[in-house]
Amino acid sequence: MQNATNTSITDLNQWFTLDEFSQAYPKFTRSQIEWLHRHRETNGFAIAFRKIGKRRYVHAGIFAKCLLKED
């Protein structure tokens, strides 16, 4: 049971706002992340983004998997 809790907390730590993500990973600019979010339904990144209220979040691990996904 405790292992599942640790996994959940670790997973939650991988969610970043778009600003936080571009600061943590400077190879991606804020405008690039916004573009990927805006076109998420057609570019395969939909599972990496979540919107809660007015805030948009990106999951670093899922983002990396989407980025490395081969068509």
Rank of each mutant, 00 (worst) to 15 (best):
A46H: 13
F21L: 05
Q32V: 14
A4I: 05
T10E: 15
H59N: 13
I62L: 09
I62P: 00
A46T: 10
E41A: 10
D19T: 14
E70F: 04
R50Y: 10
N6M: 14
S31A: 06
S22H: 04
I52A: 09
R55A: 10
R55F: 11
I33N: 02
Q2M: 09
I33F: 00
T5H: 11
Q2W: 08
T42V: 15
R50C: 07
S31R: 11
E20W: 08
N6L: 14
T42Q: 15
F21N: 01
I9S: 12
R55Y: 07
F16M: 10
H39P: 00
L18K: 03
V58E: 06
T17F: 04
G44K: 09
N13R: 15
L12T: 08
S22C: 06
L68Q: 07
S31I: 00
W15R: 05
F28L: 04
R56P: 02
I52E: 07
R56S: 14
L68D: 01
T29A: 00
A4E: 07
E70S: 11
F63I: 09
Q14T: 06
Y57H: 04
V58H: 01
N43L: 14
N6P: 08
G44F: 10
I47T: 15
A64H: 02
K51L: 03
N3Q: 10
E34W: 08
P26M: 03
L18N: 02
A64N: 04
I33C: 02
V58R: 05
V58M: 04
L67C: 06
E70A: 13
M1L: 04
D19P: 05
S22L: 00
K65C: 03
K51I: 11
G53S: 08
T29M: 00
C66I: 07
D19Y: 08
R40M: 10
I47Q: 12
A46P: 02
T7R: 13
W35Q: 13
A46C: 15
D71W: 06
H37A: 09
E34L: 10
Y25Q: 05
K51A: 12
T5M: 00
K69N: 13
K69M: 12
R38I: 06
Q2I: 12
D19E: 14
A24V: 02
L18P: 06
R38S: 15
N43H: 09
T17W: 08
S8A: 13
L67R: 05
T10N: 14
N43I: 04
Q32I: 07
F21R: 01
K54N: 15
R30V: 03
G53K: 04
I33D: 00
G61N: 09
G44C: 10
F16E: 00
W35S: 12
F45Y: 15
I9F: 09
F16A: 03
K54R: 14
C66W: 04
G61E: 07
E70D: 11
V58A: 03
T42Y: 12
G53C: 08
L68H: 03
L68M: 11
